[in-house]
Amino acid sequence: MSTPSPSTEARGTRGRTFAGVAALAGLALVATGCSASTADSGETGGEAAEGRVAVAYQNGIAVLDGTTLEIVDEFESEEFTRLNPVGDGRNVMVTMSKGFQVLDTAEPALTDRVFDATTPGHVVPHGGKTVLYDDGTGDSTVFETDALIGSEGLPESEVIPAEAAHHGVSIELEDGTFLTTIGDETARTGARALDADGEEIARSEDCPGIHGEGTAADEAVVFGCEDGALLYHHGEFEKLTAPDEFGRMGNAYVSETSPLVVGDYKTDPDAEGYLLNMVTLIDTAEHTFDVVDLPDNVQYTYRDVVRGPENLAYILSTDGSIHVLDPETGELTDEFPVVEPWEGPAEWQDPHPTIKVNGDTAYVTEPATNTVHAVDLTTGEKTASVELSAAPNEIAVALG
């Protein structure tokens, strides 16, 4: 494998710490996994399933055709890896022990291009920029989303350090505003906003346990807190308080064409297991925070909610069905049986049914049968299925 030359170039007059990222000469495929969590923002609109789907399983990754689910190729990887789309319709970031490794689903190839990170975590594409967050250092690496396409090495990038290392997340808005979480090794407390010159313009430390992010219409950004949510809109932070003393939202499921955000929700900090039975509904235009109790048979994990056609929410439940939730009313409007009933995982990393969406098509994993299904969310019909050699775990869609 060749080693591309490192690049160190400032971008404009941003005024923050910057550095280029050198690709590594190779990547030893050792058995180490990352323990970061992500929020799924979902993709809405469009009718056909295009592009390709990446599926991680123990020590491997499969690339599937987005329509037929035919296995295009398979690659060896580490024991547990996480997958996140870059946002360019082609590439997927694989969290490896040495950093974010680029999986090119078009070639396909698990390339030797690696963004160095001690503990690779969240990947957030938005507004033409993709941000990689390193939990081990707090560094955020920002690059042009489309820059990986046609690039032999790694693209020019900017590294923005955190005040202290923590499990965090960052996003860059279209006007250059950079939002990033605040925390250290003992606690996470809030978020701050930097302008295009790197100057702090807003700050809130009223979000204990801050986790995840999601961007709704009009670039309203929501972070989850242990007592509600933190909203950044029109240059200001605002706390949206949960109705319960402990009301944790950890993941935001959004559509960038809707002001309504659906979030997961937990009221018992000592509850065992990872199954949830309530959701939050946030209206970023009205700045409201509501909680909806789901029927007893509708239980899910952080991997089981997406936004899809008509900006509805789709919840993959332990009863084996996808339940359709209208975020405007909080009502369940339809149900599509897809997989056999399943139990919640003992550990969050354990394979359990997962859902991702591209346009009208949902991709659903069924680890009990080593299977991935494609489902038309407008009809509830399965359009394709494929059996893998091992139980599918993480899944990411590279849009065509």
Rank of each mutant, 00 (worst) to 15 (best):
G87M: 11
V63C: 07
N59V: 02
A54F: 04
L69F: 13
R52T: 14
E76P: 03
G89Y: 14
V72K: 15
E50M: 14
E74Y: 12
V55Q: 03
L83I: 10
V55G: 00
N84V: 09
K98C: 02
Q58D: 14
G99W: 15
V102G: 01
V53I: 14
E74W: 08
G66E: 02
G51R: 07
D104I: 00
G87C: 07
E79T: 02
N84H: 15
K98D: 09
D88C: 10
Y57M: 06
N59G: 00
T95P: 03
P85G: 02
F100K: 02
Q101E: 14
V86E: 03
D88M: 11
F100A: 12
G60W: 10
T81C: 08
L83C: 00
G87V: 06
F80P: 01
D65M: 11
D65P: 03
E78C: 09
G66W: 10
L64P: 00
G66D: 08
V63W: 08
G89L: 12
G87W: 09
R90H: 11
D65S: 08
S97L: 06
L69Y: 12
V53G: 01
D88V: 13
L64V: 04
E76W: 13
R52Y: 14
V63Q: 06
N59I: 04
I61P: 00
N59H: 15
V86N: 07
E79P: 01
T81M: 00
A56V: 09
E74H: 13
V92M: 14
G99C: 11
T81G: 07
R52K: 15
Q58P: 00
T68E: 02
Y57D: 00
A54W: 06
Q101G: 06
E78R: 12
R52V: 13
F75Q: 09
E78V: 05
P85Y: 05
G51D: 06
P85V: 07
G51F: 13
L103A: 03
P85Q: 05
T67L: 15
N84Y: 04
G51Y: 13
L69M: 14
S77I: 03
L64D: 06
T95L: 15
F100R: 03
Y57Q: 04
L83H: 03
L69Q: 09
L64G: 03
V72L: 11
D104T: 05
V86T: 12
R82G: 11
F75R: 01
R82A: 08
E79K: 01
Q58G: 02
N84F: 12
T67E: 14
V86A: 13
G99D: 10
